[in-house]
Design a protein around this nucleic acid. Structure first.
Lengths: 228, 228
DNA sequence: CGGGCACTTGATAGTAATCAAGTCCGGTGG
DNA sequence: CCACCGGACTTGATTACTATCAAGTGCCCG
């Protein structure tokens, strides 16, 4: 069954139909939620949210890629990379009122937003949304715990491979000998995602290229061989 | 107003009355919940939960201290240290069925448990419990994100001081020149909490003692001076 | 009070950060 | 379409730390 999109200016499938948070709702209920949604577009490089600034909405990514980071003394730590159908702002819905992170558009980005107040009303009206939200936040918690595990346990080389494997399904295309990944981050950002420096990532990638694990193609692509 | 405890063998205030998850409920409702609670006692050093084993309950710490860790190739990473009135098992309520961590009693520990099935029923009956749970899980998520921030940004010395400051209110007693902390962890565990080695922690603490930031008292106590 | 185990201390090596030049990609303009 | 320019990337040399390996020391418990 096809449903038209009531979300203003939206050329895609309904936002609400694409995210797991609302998956348990009927189409009629989703239609009702559509009216609460405000859509906004950001350009590549634009700052969507600044740390320590008030934030009173939940954001669903309709299109594009964003990075979520923290900064401290000219150092950057990238925590998450989110893309279509993922959401952010969850920590501000139920706990804090100010963002504790920055959100930056890495590409042209289209966001659907629902205000905190509206979302809370929804949770009361449809308790199943609250349970779905619990699931989603729990998954993010588990993912964040795994992040700690990785930085604590795994050697750097392994972590780079894991990062590339994480990118593969999202930013890669299947090629003859492996997956051709269109990197969403530059070298410095790759480093900041793993807690390293630009130079170290550069050297490690060069080494892995020499060893035949990957093939570096220009500055923006990496071929990840099947065997890796 | 005083309430007697119906939780079998409990010499304390009602478990349910002490944790924020149930704080919005009336005393009558709490009484009802009491009947769902099973209490169990663990000895120092006992393994409460093993990673990869099924886990179908939420656990509230009534008494004692537990560490929650992950292991990989004889390495240990301690993620959380929980004490009275805190809870664990939340990731298994709404997402996974097997624990992804170990839980070990560091002291004699008394736990109140509510089965996953019972807890889910409670959430449906009292939606406010679900919202409280969202808050609590969100707080744990925020704390976990800060953990990453710390390991990524802060120099080791600062992280040690922060750890001691985190211990101070829970395991410390106010003394003349500062806070006397009864360490809940041995040196190796302190190291595993910060992602370092036994020797490094030992050296750093010795240095900080020499610098007058702290005073090491035997193996189990540290005096954290006010100025730190 | 004595023994064992946790802790400390020392020496060395390995690894990534830092500092410093070069090189090359990729976008722009002719 | 090609040449050029600038910024991103690479590579090299050195330094700084922490892990590792190894040997004492001393606290704490029985």
């Amino acid at each position: 069954m096809e449903w038209s999109c009531k979300c203003h200016g939206c050329e895609h499938q309904m936002c609400t139909n694409r995210v797991p948070i609302f998956s348990s709702l009927s189409h009629e209920e989703m239609d009702a939620i559509q009216s609460l949604i405000i859509q906004r577009t950001y350009n590549k490089g634009e700052v969507i949210i600044k740390a320590n600034e008030p934030m009173h909405a939940i954001f669903i990514l309709n299109e594009g890629v964003v990075k979520i980071n923290k900064r401290f003394q000219d150092k950057e730590q990238i925590l998450y990379l989110l893309t279509e159908n993922e959401f952010f702002g969850e920590t501000n819905l139920f706990a804090q009122t100010n963002s504790n992170m920055n959100v930056i558009a890495l590409t042209k980005t289209v966001l659907c937003t629902i205000s905190k107040a509206d979302f809370e009303k929804l949770v009361y009206k449809y308790p199943s949304i609250g349970l779905k939200m619990l699931e989603e936040i729990t998954h993010r918690l588990i993912k964040t715990q795994q992040l700690i595990e990785n930085t604590g346990f795994k050697p750097i080389d392994d972590r780079i491979v894991e990062m590339l494997k994480e990118f593969a399904p999202k930013y890669g295309k299947s090629a003859e000998k492996g997956t051709l990944i269109e990197l969403p981050l530059n070298r410095e950002e790759l480093a900041n995602y793993l807690g390293l420096t630009r130079e170290t990532i550069s050297r490690k990638l060069a080494k892995m290229d020499k060893e035949g694990l990957i093939k570096i193609i220009g500055h923006k692509k990496i071929l990840l061989y099947h065997s890796s």
